[in-house]
């Protein structure tokens, strides 16, 4: 199903995000957008451009540089009737406002036996590859996927930027919504098939190696699939929580090989969880060990040359997949 939308095919990811928020604001007056510079300024990346003009001061609200305060207030507001979309400008900044997410939003439904509902979307922009340095480049999605009570979605396509935004706003749970800024300028099909939040998409069918990924790395994996001598089945998870393991398992049953690719640091990353689960379920059906590709365990350096050397590339993905195929 596709949403009635002003986003035309070949729209940009960033516009689809704005369109998702605009649709949410339009259909439900309880929805507000809250964050630093999201108002008349339109946000530092211009993701909320035009929303303030359309919906006004009380719906699109500029916050002071006070993440703990306004993210906490968004959680309190979600408990009492509003449906806030709250922006954390860089995912790295979540360090100063973790309590409202970790201890409040994720826990209060449970601790009140369902008496409180917390429909809040935490938008976080992330992504290495722009020389932004160690405090503006981290992919921390595994932190949130580790906390019961949170959903974690990572749209990798233009259509998902809009559709997952709407799904996140409609969801009765707190949703961490991760946007990779290297995708902002990406153009793509805004009318692609709509899947529910929690369902992975087979982005490209293939036979030899199942490649599981999410976020910005989807593009690298699809390029790798183009270039590789092996036939790759690329799965875009779309969300880590919920985790659509069924789609992964179904694919690995056919291919017998699994490669997990993410931009986040590989050590203790979400890839480890997926590898463990697949290993547990399909030990006898795997032709080779499960492999992971992620960033090495170092802070992201400023130097563009160093940074480039640390991030998985389509070439590295393609070689890893070919290596798996050669192994067995």
């Amino acid at each position: 199903m596709s949403t009635a939308s002003e986003v035309k095919p070949e729209a940009r990811y960033i516009d689809a995000l704005g369109e998702g928020m605009a649709l949410a604001l339009e259909e439900d007056e309880r929805v507000i957008v809250l964050g630093i510079d999201v108002g008349a300024g339109g946000g530092i990346f211009r993701v909320t451009k035009g929303l303030h003009e359309r919906f006004g001061d009380e719906r699109v609200i500029d916050a002071p540089i006070s993440e703990m305060g306004y993210v906490g207030a968004a959680v309190g507001a979600a408990m009492t009737g509003l449906r806030p979309i709250v922006e954390i400008m860089f995912m790295d900044f979540v360090g100063v406002c973790m309590d409202p997410i970790l201890n409040q939003a994720a826990k209060l439904r449970y601790m009140t036996a369902g008496a409180l509902e917390i429909p809040v979307v935490f938008r976080m922009q992330t992504g290495a590859g722009r020389s932004a340095g160690a405090q503006h480049s981290q992919s921390l999605e595994a932190w949130f996927a580790h906390v019961p009570g949170l959903k974690v979605v990572l749209p990798a396509t233009v259509a998902d930027a809009r559709d997952l935004m709407l799904d996140a706003v409609h969801d009765p749970n707190p949703v961490v919504f991760v946007e990779n800024r290297r995708l902002y300028a990406m153009r793509g099909d805004a009318e692609a098939e709509r899947l529910p939040l929690g369902k992975a998409r087979v982005a490209r069918p293939g036979d030899d190696v199942t490649v599981v990924t999410w976020g910005q790395m989807l593009r690298e994996c699809l390029s790798a699939a183009e270039e590789s001598e092996a036939s790759l089945e690329v799965i875009d998870l779309r969300s880590l929580a919920p985790l659509d393991l069924d789609t992964v398992v179904e694919s690995v049953r056919r291919s017998g090989r699994l490669l997990i690719v993410h931009e986040a640091v590989q050590d203790f990353g979400a890839g480890a969880e997926i590898a463990a689960r697949v290993g547990d379920l399909l030990f006898d059906e795997l032709r080779t060990p499960v492999r992971r590709l992620g960033a090495p365990a170092v802070p992201m350096p400023f130097s563009p040359d160093l940074e480039r050397a640390l991030l998985p590339t389509s070439k590295a993905i393609s070689s890893a997949a070919e290596g798996l195929k050669a192994e067995g």
């Binding site: 507000i32 009380e58 305060g69 906490g72 959680v75 309190g76 408990m79 409202p100």
Partner: peptide
């Protein structure tokens, strides 16, 4: 404090 202030925000906006 932030939670209570958020509830006050709901009260005002709604």
């Amino acid at each position: 404090l932030p939670l209570g202030v958020g509830a006050a925000l709901s009260s005002k906006l709604l």
